[in-house]
């Protein structure tokens, strides 16, 4: 790769000290993520996929190894507002309208009022929620709320979008729809996306790179560069290439479980 990677982790360790003794959440994690990639992290509970995302976001701090985000430490990157983070729950403030929720990071980051309005309009369009700016969160469905939370993460135009099982709580039909929209959004914005998921089809459908992880200690067992084209209609999931990648992911997950 000629460009410097957006995210570079070398021999990353993270050990939580708990009352039941240390827990190795991450052990010897090496990974490079290039600009514009869509990287999925998949693995069973406790494999450290969310922890790794949180380390990138400087919400957790590694106990060993190095990690850089845009060539800086994660803390510096956070202070420079290098990423938008989408949590599993939409976490919209009930006392703010959808537009008000999207303005939240913009207010904190000191955008002018006119610019706030402009950006809210743009991201609402991006997540297909035009005309919903004046609604309150409880007036929207779960899927729409999650789209609003993605809009909130996109509003300040960070190059990196970190998503921690954003569609985990939604039903399959809504999820398919949102996956399709997310790909379209990624194509338009050319952001680098880190995406944590439990779902093999979701990971294969979305990603240019799939990172398979296994627990105790949390580590990477396989990194799969997807051969699928960037342009992906939903029915690509019935092609042999897709099934082959899915099969390899499944193998990787099984290998990680071999000895427990």
């Amino acid at each position: 790769m000629t460009q410097t990677p957006v995210i570079q982790a070398q021999n990353l360790d993270l050990t939580f000290q708990t009352n039941d003794g240390p827990i190795h959440a991450l052990k010897g994690v090496d990974l490079e993520i290039g600009k514009g990639e869509f990287v999925s992290f998949i693995g069973p509970s406790g494999c450290g996929k969310t922890t790794f995302l949180r380390v990138i976001a400087a919400l957790e701090h590694p106990t060993g190894g190095t990690i850089t985000v845009n060539g800086m430490t994660p803390d510096e990157a956070r202070q420079k507002r290098a990423y938008g983070y989408v949590f599993q729950a939409a976490g919209l403030y009930p006392w703010r309208t959808i537009a008000g929720n999207i303005k939240l990071p913009l207010e904190i980051m000191g955008f002018s009022r006119a610019e706030q309005e402009e950006r809210v309009k743009n991201v609402l369009q991006l997540v297909d929620l035009e005309g919903f700016g004046g609604k309150f969160p409880w007036q929207l469905s779960g899927g729409m709320q999650q789209r609003a939370s993605i809009a909130r993460a996109l509003a300040f135009d960070a190059d990196i979008l970190l998503m921690d099982e954003p569609f985990g709580a939604l039903d399959e039909i809504v999820r398919d729809h949102l996956n399709e929209q997310l790909l379209a959004l990624w194509a338009r914005t050319e952001k680098t996306i880190g995406f944590v998921t439990h779902s093999i089809p979701e990971a294969v459908y979305l990603s240019t790179k799939i990172v398979v992880m296994s627990p105790r200690p949390g580590r990477i067992t396989d990194v799969i560069d997807s051969p699928l084209p960037r342009e992906r209609p939903l029915d690509i999931r019935d092609t042999p290439e897709f099934l082959e990648v899915a099969h390899r992911v499944r193998e990787g997950l099984r290998a990680g479980h071999a000895y427990d």
Partner: peptide, 12 residues
């Protein structure tokens, strides 16, 4: 914790 984390990601 999630809402507080969200504020941290904005470096609030």
């Amino acid at each position: 914790a999630m809402q507080l984390d969200l504020m941290r990601t904005y470096n609030a």
